[in-house]
Design a protein around this nucleic acid. Structure first.
Ligand SMILES: [Mn+2]
Ligand SMILES: [Mn+2]
Ligand SMILES: [Zn+2]
Ligand SMILES: [Zn+2]
Lengths: 139, 139
DNA sequence: CCTGAAAGTGAAAATGAGTTTCAATAAGTT
DNA sequence: AACTTATTGAAACTCATTTTCACTTTCAGG
């Protein structure tokens, strides 16, 4: 819970207001884990703050992404969000769509590298394939 | 043009019908280059086959992705497609959104590798950062 | 070269994620 | 406590993608 407080206080220090809605979204995000979609965050956050509106979840996730607290990407026709804590990547199953966290990084391009005029500040990698469960089904 | 013919004949050999609409979409895709959205493919394909419907473009791109001829991903609220010819990746500018092709691969995970039960068949990598133009604007 | 069964197509309607608007509410400052 | 202004939620809206369905085309077989 200390990390959440730090996040919220940093937001406040940067001039944003700390509201009940934002508190609830941040907490939901922390519980949600990898590749949470907006509905999942909404459902979790609403438990702590029932009058929360879906629009505010969109706005807050957007704010957190712009402020660099969460990673955002799109998959399966909807945006995914997660706290970008220790750098990691994902294994995406082509059969069932399951997303699994993978805590290593096999990318040899460093942050700050320049590739013909383009300065790299980060990267996003997905390894696609088949998860253990789906392989067993095929057998 | 020979590659397109090969693609279409392979489709036929697998039981799919080769139609004017599919021909037009395949040709458009070849001209479109990197990270083409559906509208772009539609516009190009319609030049060669004016009565083409947008729905058919969606269906054909989907077919080609399932059959392994094109890479598909989502970005900016819309799907992107491209012929997955020689393996490559993309540089995505955070400021202007431009997508630049990068013909190297800095990912050290081989196709066929197994990561704790998960079999890797491929990967998708985006290097994010700032393109030359946007860096110059900031100065 | 015909023909018919089945795949494919396009227009229009439906769906659903995400955004915009705006009046009401709450945060933080004095 | 009063005040200024950011934030919020509901509802309307936008726009990519999907679904439906009657009509058309492909191509295997004759
Ligand atoms: Mn994750
Ligand atoms: Mn490309
Ligand atoms: Zn990495
Ligand atoms: Zn690669």
């Amino acid at each position: 819970m200390s990390f959440n407080k730090f996040l919220l206080e940093t937001l406040r220090a940067r001039g944003w207001r700390v509201t009940a809605a934002r508190r609830a979204v941040v907490e939901a995000l922390a519980r949600a884990g990898c590749a949470a979609d907006v509905q999942t965050v909404y459902r979790l956050a609403k438990r702590a703050y029932p009058r929360l509106g879906l629009v505010t979840v969109y706005r807050t996730l957007d704010l957190l992404a712009r402020e660099g607290w969460v990673q955002r990407w799109e998959e399966g026709g909807a945006a995914r969000y997660e706290l970008d804590q220790p750098h990691h990547h994902h294994l995406v199953c082509l059969a069932c769509g399951a997303v699994q966290r993978w805590d290593r990084c096999p990318v040899s391009v460093r942050e700050g590298a320049t590739l013909g005029g383009f300065v790299v500040t980060g990267h996003r990698l997905e390894l696609v394939g088949y998860c253990r469960t789906c392989r067993e089904v095929v057998r």
